[in-house]
Design a protein around this nucleic acid. Structure first.
Length: 719
RNA sequence: GCGCCUUUAGCUCAGUGGUAGAGCGUUCGCUUCACACGCGAAAGGCCGUAGGUUCAAUCCCUACAAGGCGCACCA
């Protein structure tokens, strides 16, 4: 018996060596797998953002993905687990900006190319950490196929999709209202906003003969009309007339228009229209051909149109304007008003609606296909209720702004006209067909989700790559529920659009791992737990078990170190059971199955039932149950009952002894097999410590547990 | 405003149409020849509230309550 078995299991003494053994075996690569392997089974690792270290959520995700892959590899599929890393555009740029701010630097004083190169170096460094950490988690992924979202072949596919969308009329350049972050100096998609409820002052201001109510008096210099409800009899006499409005910087004439959208019961029923700085007003501006007069600049300051207020920040200007209006006797009254505003999801600053020429994806036709795919079960989503959430979001979705004014990202392959807002994806065009001006390259970059939304087919070498033909569509997309819209929905839409097929058949959404007190982990709270510390302390297998047992799809979990510790004890239990059996190995006389006692036959049968059960659970994504059943069986049936009872039988006659030993060895061996997807390190370590002859005597000749066949059950894996 | 989820042992969470489980914790006893990262035993739950369906509900249905989340361009 291996001397190392005599002391408690020390994960750190084995894990690195075992991972190297797997990696060097070449079996992470599907083409090296032995046997027929007709069915491809692919999981793409959601590429971690290469802007920091892995967090516990990655550990949970990687574990779930690796369990599926290891199970399918053992069950005979041609498995590909493809790793990657994400440049994570805006996210990474924000992280990097914060980092250099600490050194007293700012990205706004840097050349764009300089910034790009610095972030690239930063990202490459983080990517290396991340790769080491993914290995430490035991992920059996094919590193030879690793992809980075900025790899030239990925970018080429993304460009192709953009061009196709443009040619199909599904991408258009529009001068429309977008969410602008005055801090980050870029527009954001609707998803990248966070609604915040706050209480502001509602100002009632004299507008000539009328009174309007607004929370933004500082935008009055951009007003182009006043709108009332068409049936509001209070204002009949003013409809379609011009009214003279006095402002602190002079008079202006505004047309009084009517629109059904005006609520007569809100405020005074008269609404000032500022198309350049309010989404509703912008729509109305389009409807009635009103000009959009910009009075606030990209930094959130009032511009030269605002006379003495020019240069003031919005909030400052609001106060001063209100004060001046009061002095002029134009401020009728104020009210306290609770409403919801859009803020930047990263910095929390109030977003300024701005009218900018940007690229938009026309969502409706894409969404319709995605909805259909889910409705017809071409894609299933777990937890089931998230299909409702998915449908809810896609139904009535608005067009997607994919232009970002940041350096760190994939440049948009388009040429744009500075004079008239024309733009084209035909980069050979040099002259604006509208106004004749010279076209210039679009300085913007893509929303990072536009490119990662193409990850499944881009990584596999669409359209002609062998991998694309073999491994697409992928089997399961496993990720956190909080990126269902950002990523999953976009992948389904763009996958269907570009390839005509769904990118994956099943979506498994795990919940967020929160800290012990159920708080969301975040760097600012300082409660982020490093999974590497945990696996160093308890072993990777214990961490994996601690994360997945009791963890159901979609449900958040509180990180429990005591639970992980419990599974470290379990690992030691496995270790000692193996020791018990292997200590008795020299008493073994059989080289194949001896005649079994009735009891031992029953014990093996009981094990088969467990194997069936666990297989069904794995097929149906019930990893939390499969793991718990294995734990329970191994400890409370195998160790507590079978081994305890075997002690007496091992003192009986030779036939009984051989039968008992066979049952023990057989159950141990098969348990290692079933446990392997969950606890790959200790099971493979023991497999390697077990003499090959012993394994062979219970029917297993494979040198590596990783590719040992899964026990035959009546349950065949779902496709 | 619309929608979704959760409510089970002290804590964190599983689970099933026939009156419940795990990890940790608690109590008692054990250095028993695989394991003290252990063994044996025990305490602890009207399975959120009120109705309904059913022979039978913690599990299905309907309200309600509490907590959480997502979506939402009414100034």
């Amino acid at each position: 018996m291996d001397e190392r078995l005599k002391k408690p299991y020390q994960p750190s003494e084995h894990e690195e060596h075992i991972y190297r053994l797997w990696e060097e075996s070449g079996f992470f690569q599907p083409e090296n797998l032995t046997g027929k392997r007709e069915k491809a089974y692919t999981i793409l690792m959601p590429p971690p953002n290469a802007n920091g270290h892995l967090h516990v959520g990655h550990a949970l995700a990687t574990t779930l993905q690796d369990i599926m892959i290891r199970y399918r590899r053992m069950a005979g599929d041609k498995t590909l687990f493809l790793p990657g890393a994400d440049h994570a555009g805006f996210e990474t740029q924000v992280v990097y900006e914060k980092k250099i701010e600490k050194d007293g630097r700012s990205r706004f004083s840097m050349e764009r190319e300089e910034l790009y190169q610095e972030i690239l170096a930063f990202t490459n460094e983080n990517k290396r950490f991340m790769e080491t950490e993914v290995r430490a988690l035991g992920a059996s992924c094919d590193w030879s196929r690793e992809k980075f979202t900025l790899d030239p072949d990925i970018v080429e596919v993304v460009y192709g999709t953009f061009r196709k969308l443009f040619d199909d009329g599904l991408v258009y350049r529009g001068k429309r209202m977008v969410n602008w972050c005055t801090r980050h100096q870029t527009s954001l998609s609707d998803l990248e906003t966070a609604a915040k409820t706050q209480t502001d002052t509602l100002y009632y201001i004299s507008y000539g003969p009328l009174t309007v109510a607004t929370v933004r008096p500082e935008t009055m210099f951009g007003d182009v009309a006043v709108a009332v409800h068409p049936e509001d009899t209070r204002y009949t006499e003013f409809i379609d007339t011009s009214i003279a409005v006095t402002t602190p910087i002079g008079s202006m004439y505004l047309k009084v228009i009517t629109d059904e959208a005006v609520d007569p019961d809100f405020g005074t029923g008269a609404l000032k229209i500022t198309p350049a700085h309010d989404p509703n007003d912008f729509e109305m501006g389009l409807k009635y051909s009103l000009p959009a007069v910009e009075v606030i600049d990209q930094y959130g300051k009032l511009n030269e149109r605002c006379g003495k207020y020019a240069g003031m920040k919005i909030l400052e200007a609001r106060e001063v304007v209100a004060k001046d209006l009061t002095e002029m006797g134009l401020l009728i009254k104020t009210e306290s008003y609770e409403h919801s505003i859009s803020t930047c999801y990263k910095c929390g600053k109030t977003l300024e609606p701005r009218v900018l020429p940007q690229w938009f994806v026309r969502m409706e036709p894409l969404a319709a296909q995605a909805l259909e795919a889910v409705r017809t079960k071409k894609v299933t989503i777990l937890p089931e209720y998230s299909e409702k959430v998915f449908n809810n979001w896609l139904y009535g979705i608005r067009d997607w702004n994919i232009s970002r004014q940041i350096a760190w990202g994939i440049p948009i392959p388009a040429r744009v006209c500075g004079a008239c807002d024309y733009g084209t994806a035909d980069i050979t065009q040099t002259k604006c067909p509208i106004c004749g001006a010279t076209l210039t390259p679009d300085p913007d970059t893509f929303d990072t989700w536009f490119s990662s939304g193409q990850w499944p087919f881009a990584t596999l070498g669409y359209p002609d790559g062998e991998d694309f033909k073999t491994f697409y569509p992928t089997a399961v997309l496993e990720t956190a529920y909080d990126i269902l819209f950002f990523w999953v929905a976009r992948m389904i839409m763009l996958g269907l659009y570009r390839t005509g097929k769904v990118p994956f058949r099943h979506v498994y959404l795990h919940g967020l791992v929160r800290d012990v007190s159920r708080q969301k982990m975040s760097k600012s709270k300082g409660n982020v737990v490093n999974p590497i510390e945990l696996l160093t302390r308890y072993g990777t297998d214990a961490l994996r078990m601690g994360l997945i047992i009791g963890n159901t799809p979609g449900a958040d979990s509180a990180l429990s170190e005591t639970k992980i510790k419990g599974y470290k004890h379990f690992a030691n239990k496995i270790w000692n059971v193996a020791r018990f059996v292997l200590e008795r190995a020299d008493e073994i006389e059989f080289t194949e199955r001896p005649v079994l006692t009735e009891g031992d036959a029953a014990r093996l049968k009981e094990f088969s039932t467990l194997a069936e059960d666990v297989t069904v659970d794995l097929n149906e994504f019930r990893f939390h149950l499969a793991g718990e059943k294995l734990y329970h069986y191994f400890w409370h049936t195998f160790a507590d009952t079978i081994i305890e009872e075997s002690k007496a039988r091992l003192k009986e006659d030779s036939d009984t002894r051989q039968s008992t030993l066979f049952a023990l060895l057989s159950i141990l061996t098969k348990s290692l097999i079933l446990l392997h997807p969950f606890m790959p390190f200790i099971t493979e370590t023991l497999w390697q410590m077990m003499p090959g002859k012993l394994r062979a005597s219970v029917g297993y000749r494979e040198a590596l547990l990783m590719i040992t066949p899964w026990p035959n059950t009546s349950q065949s894996p779902l496709s």
